[in-house]
């Protein structure tokens, strides 16, 4: 009796389909993604049901990190004007090189006394130094000066004042930031948050549903 031979199946798997999927996903991620902008510090904003996108132009972003330090991010379209205005208001003695250094700085997290030193540090090393944050004490609120310079420099433009706080930052710091804005007669802000679904069954949920059906 001859033993029945088990036929050896080929171990080759056709990779074409998998390859297709991989590159399809790849192109999807390339097209939908945006590169993470460099940030001074890691800030995890809370989530809200708001579905409005945070403005990216003419943005004056105040970040509050988990240790209640305050940082400032300016977009390039207003950065130069704010610097000029600040130099004028503070009577700083600066050179054209300083302005260039400032333009190359993504975020500001130091008091004015250290500002000129800070902007000279090459940008790769800036992340490694410990920044004290912009002072926001009631006696020494330097954020106020920044806001004042920004609102003067941004006249004629619509500046977007954004506040981005970390989940675990204290309300106290946020209150101080708001105070600094209020002193400059600015009462409207955008709070940067992560998107969140509207809980079903609530008034807003019903309204959104109605709006969707109306739009169809």
């Amino acid at each position: 009796m001859g033993r029945a031979k088990i036929k050896r199946g080929s171990t080759n798997v056709d990779m074409t389909a998998m390859c297709d999927v991989a590159f399809l996903l790849l192109s999807f991620f390339i097209l939908t993604g945006q590169f993470k902008p460099s940030e001074a510090v890691e800030v995890n904003p809370p989530s809200s049901v708001s579905n409005k996108h945070a403005p990216q132009k003419d943005a004056f972003l105040v970040s509050i990190d988990k240790d209640d330090r305050v940082f400032l991010n300016l977009t390039d379209d207003i950065k130069g004007d704010i610097w000029d205005e600040l130099v004028k208001e503070k009577n700083l003695n600066v050179s054209a090189q300083d302005r260039k250094d400032f333009m190359g700085t993504d975020f500001i997290g130091v008091p004015f006394s250290q500002l000129l030193q800070f902007i000279k540090i090459p940008s790769e090393q800036k992340k490694n130094i410990k920044m004290p944050g912009i002072p926001i004490d009631s006696t020494n609120n330097e954020l106020e000066a920044w806001i004042s310079a920004a609102s003067t420099a941004g006249q004629g433009k619509k500046l977007n004042f954004l506040i981005k706080g970390d989940n675990s930052s204290k309300y106290f710091a946020f209150g101080r930031v708001i105070d600094a804005f209020k002193k400059n007669d600015i009462f409207k802000y955008n709070l940067v948050t992560n998107a969140e679904d509207v809980p079903p069954g609530t008034v807003l949920y019903e309204e959104n549903l109605k709006a969707q059906h109306g739009g169809k």
């Binding site: 996903l25 708001s50 981005k164 955008n190 709070l191 948050t193 998107a195």
Partner: peptide, 28 residues
């Protein structure tokens, strides 16, 4: 080629932000 594709996917997932941050209005 599949290896390469998935490597690139991983890279893009880690370096990009998918969800744009939203903003809520606050008037004081």
């Amino acid at each position: 080629m599949v290896d390469l594709g998935f490597l690139l996917i991983t890279f893009f997932i880690f370096t990009t932000t998918l969800a744009e941050p939203t903003a809520m209005n606050l008037a004081m």
